[in-house]
Design a protein around this nucleic acid. Sequence first.
RNA 1: GGGCGCUUAGCUCAGGGGGAGAGCGCUUCCUUGACGCGGAAGAGGUCCGGGGUUCAAAUCCCCGAGCGCCCACCA
Length: 862
Amino acid sequence: MEAAYDPQRVESEWYSRWEAAGVFAPEINPDGEPFCIVIPPPNVTGSLHMGHALDLSIQDVIIRRKRMQGYAALWLPGTDHAGIATQIVVERELAEEGVDREELGREQFIEQVWAWKAKFGGRITEQMRRLGFSTDWSRERFTMDEGLSEAVKKVFVDLYDADLIYRGNRIINWCPRDRTAISDVEVIHEDETGELVHILYPFTDGPGGIEVATTRVESMLGDTGVAVHPDDERYSGVVGRSVTLPLVGREVPIVADDAVDSDFGTGAVKVTPGHDLLDFEIGQRHGLEAILILDEGGAINENGGSFAGLDRMDARTAVKAALQAEGAVVRVEEHLYSVGHCQRCDTIVEPYLSDQWFVRVGPLVGPAIEAVRSGDIRFSPQRWEKTYFHWMENLRDWTISRQIWWGHRIPAWYCDECGETIVAVAAPRRCQCGSTSLRQDEDVLDTWFSSGLFPFSALGWPEDTDDYRAFYPNSVLVTGYDIISFWVARMIKLGLYFTGAKPFADVVIHGMLRAEDGRKMSKSVGNTVDPLVVVEEHGADALRLALMQAASPGQDIPFSEEWVEAARRFGNKLWNAVRFGLRHIAPGSVPADGGYPERPGPEEAWILSRLYDTVGRVDELLDEFRFSDAYGLLYNFAWSEMFDWFLEMSKAPLRRGDTSIGETVGVVLRDVLKLFHPAIPYVTEELWSELVGDGYIASTSWPRPPKTDGPADFESLRTLIVGIRRFRAEHGLSPRRELEVGLYDPDGAAAEWWNDQFESLAAVAPVPLSEPPSGAPHARVVAGQVQAFISLEGVVDVDAERERLARAIAELEASLAQSDKKLGNPQFVEKAPRDVVAKEEEKADASRARLEKLEAQLAELR
RNA sequence: GGGCGCUUAGCUCAGGGGGAGAGCGCUUCCUUGACGCGGAAGAGGUCCGGGGUUCAAAUCCCCGAGCGCCCACCA
């Protein structure tokens, strides 16, 4: 075995061997009970970021453990066509070559995107391989695959037939840069300080006027009314009258509507039905015309008169100036309000009246809420259910059409002759009116429409495939809280509606990875950390273990390279522990499972009992998706107990040629490798090949050590050894300095095996005493009934030891005083549980006994 | 306007009614044949503040402060 741990070397070969051996591809029969996770499909043109690394590391830990536990464990990978995001990327690329999308035309452009996908679509999946994720690539899916596209069409047509999809002329969010509609969840609201401009609209039929206020002054070009609250006495006389718009000259009515908030501003609101949702609704109720004043690129159109051609932001300035020139501006004040930005390109979005397709979500919401409320689907941590409910209960219809080219084209055709709309899976040849002049809708579907089907469409639905039958519903879904509304909620709604079953049983929500300073990682701030760079430096195992240790459920994580370094040191430690083992055990001699000694020696019994306990607790924690707790516990077991104590304790027996303890070293090391394998697959596989050499750790069984009772006197031994070490440290004695130590043991608890350990761990050879020594001064280390007496003669200054003792006595007295106070409280003795009281009594007794001995010793030293 | 989260060691964070923890950093010692990417022994904490419940509160409840996030038709 290589002397030094080199992550890059260790991580270079295993992945292709796992893949070639089909380790990640489950057989439905007879491998066992199915267990399935589908990946949140990343953008096909993207590259792996830290968030992916966290998300996928969690999934790999879950799936690798389940696989080891004997489940037919499927982790299904895939990528998302990511409509707008991908189109933007390809457009930008073409623009650099001087090619314009419009010039190219739709078909050619789409060809270009497919070419782009062919060229770069493998990048992110290669990166996933580098990180060691055990997805079954033989089942890889792409959201625009033929099968998945069929599923999309079927879902669209079925929802249309059920009147759950409709086309309508509504106010939607429009991104002028991307020139498409986007859904509510794709709008990011940010608070910004702008101007609230108060304008006086003069009455048409007389003097005076009505004052309105707006943050988007240019929208007044499209005003077709003014609204006030019906109960607002200030305006009771003006409802029914009309005002004349400055600049525009249009005469518009004053209406009364409940939606108006009398307490805001002047209590009168200008109504722009074409560019505001509330105004649209008011307009509908009062028959006000909706006038569009913006074109698709966000510039003022011909309805804006002399302002036509100006970008909306320039128009804002120009219209305000023109109004001021007319004296129509009453005042201008600063105003904090929230502005919607496009999630993809950060452009300010506009409310925009347009023809779009919508999913009527109302009827889908009830079952989706019930599935979570009843516990059929569980969120973990549970508090994220609140977010889910809150979002579900406040839903508006989902805008699903996008005015872009890359995506699933809407399966709707319009007849040129009669205007009929035909929605069908296959392109219709002729209309019912007989016409063959049919045009397909130009729009494509929101990307999330297809990803919302992924848990079942990726398994072959609507075909009744073996995979669908075996792996649906999925077992677990792992994702960040940022896409609960985009994705999780929609999968639940659509899954329940179309399959009649929940899409998954557990939803594991993790936090966002942040930069070291706690801020969001963002390309524009320039504080992103590329996981592949980290992997190159420290290895995939180190990054993965660091993420798992930091992944406190549902909580954001500031990324810190220090953690990765620490995790890599753990890999190094593990490496060297196995290297130590192999000095005493023949390579390949450790069985792949079992092999626990039937009559373990005391050191072995201790570590086996600790192993048993650790496996039990780790299993509980992992079943509850508490990854950081589980790996924290494992880390401490491996390092503090297995390596620092047991391996050290094994040295003396091994030197004597004790083969039994060698077997135990091998078996426990093997189980440590197994327990860590889901998090750090590479180094554990490499070490497995050295230690066990049989098959792959990736497809072996999860540890199941037998229940073993550790030796009752282990803690006494440990106390004495630590005490002697401490004695040396506090007196500045070299670890090599010989000490005369006598061991007084009235109960005979100090067995023979202790001698080895004293020699090995404390570098002393204790002499058994039949009674406590008298005369010459001694330091004393007390562990229950057993006491170690360290001769002070010629070793340390008696004064120094006296001081040391005095400090120990003071500490002990303080703790004893606390115990006595508790035990002296009758309320405590009566009301506290018996075991708590008993424990406290034990503690007090032990302290008292120890104190007595220390005081006796102090007296001896005078 | 509504909701959620966080506040614990110098730093970054776990924990969650009865012994205050980890990593990193810090101090002292150690060239023992697994590992100095290591070992041993330590120092360091009014668990944000104030009330309450309880025999017992860092932990549960209420109030407050600071920070962060999400949602909302904030003209």
